[in-house]
């Protein structure tokens, strides 16, 4: 328990990941699936950002003439998070575009109902 409280960022990230993952997998509403996916990705970014931060060290920008590498945190995790955000934004846009096209055609967001109607349409 103590371990969980000490690593509360990681614990929080894992809980968020679980919520997002189950929503993405089990929910029938397409919009909620997109939300679940966003949560999953955000949880991973929280995890990465938490791993990349070391208490007492500075952001890796040279200031006040301190050139010792030990005074700064590693910039790579932050860079990874930024790249990851760019990727997830584009994927979210794609998913929303697909959702809009399906909604215009079938007037529902329920993936099972959409599949049923698509089957019927084909005959």
């Amino acid at each position: 328990m103590n371990l969980l409280i000490q690593n509360y960022e990681e614990a929080c990230a894992v809980i968020l990941f679980g919520i997002g993952f189950t929503t993405l997998l089990l929910h029938r509403n397409l919009l909620k699936k997109v939300i679940g996916f966003s949560m999953t990705d955000s949880a991973i970014y929280l995890f990465l950002a938490a791993k990349g931060y070391i208490a007492g060290k500075r952001a890796p920008i040279l200031k006040e003439g301190i050139t010792r590498a030990e005074a700064y945190v590693n910039p790579i995790p932050a860079g990874l998070v930024l790249t990851g955000i760019v990727v997830s934004v584009s994927v979210t846009a794609l998913m929303l575009a697909l959702t809009i096209r399906l909604y215009r055609r079938y007037h529902t967001l329920d993936i099972d109902e959409i599949t049923r109607q698509a089957r019927r349409e084909e005959g």
Partner: peptide
């Protein structure tokens, strides 16, 4: 319609 639903499931 079938291709769109297939793409959604794939995604």
């Amino acid at each position: 319609g079938r291709a769109l639903t297939a793409a959604t499931r794939y995604m």
